[in-house]
Structure formats: C-alpha cells, structure tokens
C-alpha cells in the first residue's frame, strides 16, 4: 500500500494523482499530492513507476503497516528502486529490452519434458 509521499522530493507535477488507477491521491491546496483514500490502494506500484523524482513509496503489503521513515527507506535504496529495475527514468534504458522470459520458457519446456 502507498505509505509515503516525500514532501522534500515532490515537485508537484500531479503525475501520481493522474495515473493512479484507483484514485488514491487528492491534491492539497498547496498543490501537493496527499494520500486521501489509502484503503482504495491496490498495491500495483504504478504511481512509483510514473513519479519522476522517486518521491513515493509503496509498501508491498496489501494492508497498512508500520513502514520505515523516509530517511531509512532512502538509505536502504528503496525509494525509486522499482523504477530502476524497470529501467524507467533519465539515462536508463527500458528493462523490457533485457526481458529474459525466453529463458524461462526454455526452462519450462525442459522441465516438463523430463
């Protein structure tokens, strides 16, 4: 579930408000996204992928849990880690080009052939 919008990192681009498929965010009077309907979050991580400044953190749990604070998350390299793995962001190349699913299919065929 969405747990954090970093006020320090956020550039008020409203991208997360726009792309969230279940409309979890509202815009505050100052133009910042706020988590208005956390219970509607479906933990799909799409807001993180579309955030240009890695200001969001979605915990993998499907229910609210105690999560580490922003500093700990940043130190653990978790802010923006999914975007990095998918290869989105300036100076990165899309992970889709390195998709190794064909090795999985080959292995599946080999396994089921045994």
């Amino acid at each position: 579930m969405i747990q954090l919008v970093s006020r320090e990192r956020c550039v008020s681009c409203s991208r997360c408000i726009q792309v969230c498929p279940t409309r979890v965010f509202d815009e505050s009077p100052e133009g910042l996204p706020v988590i208005a309907r956390q219970e509607d979050c479906q933990t799909c991580f799409m807001c993180e992928l579309y955030c240009p400044v890695d200001a969001l953190y979605v915990s993998p749990h499907d229910h609210p849990v105690e999560t580490p604070g922003e500093r700990e998350l940043a130190q653990a390299g978790l802010l923006g880690s999914y975007r990095e793995h998918v290869g989105w962001g300036r100076g990165r190349s899309p992970g889709a080009a390195k998709d190794a699913s064909y090795l999985m299919i080959m292995e599946m065929r080999r396994t089921s052939g045994n």
Binding site: Y82, V86, A100
Partner: peptide, 11 residues
C-alpha cells in the same frame, strides 16, 4: 534471468 524476466516478482 528470473530477475530480468519479471522484476515485479522480486519487488
């Protein structure tokens, strides 16, 4: 290769 095939699995 599993990591390269399905990055979200490991998230």
């Amino acid at each position: 290769w599993m990591r390269l095939a399905q990055p979200n699995f490991f998230l």
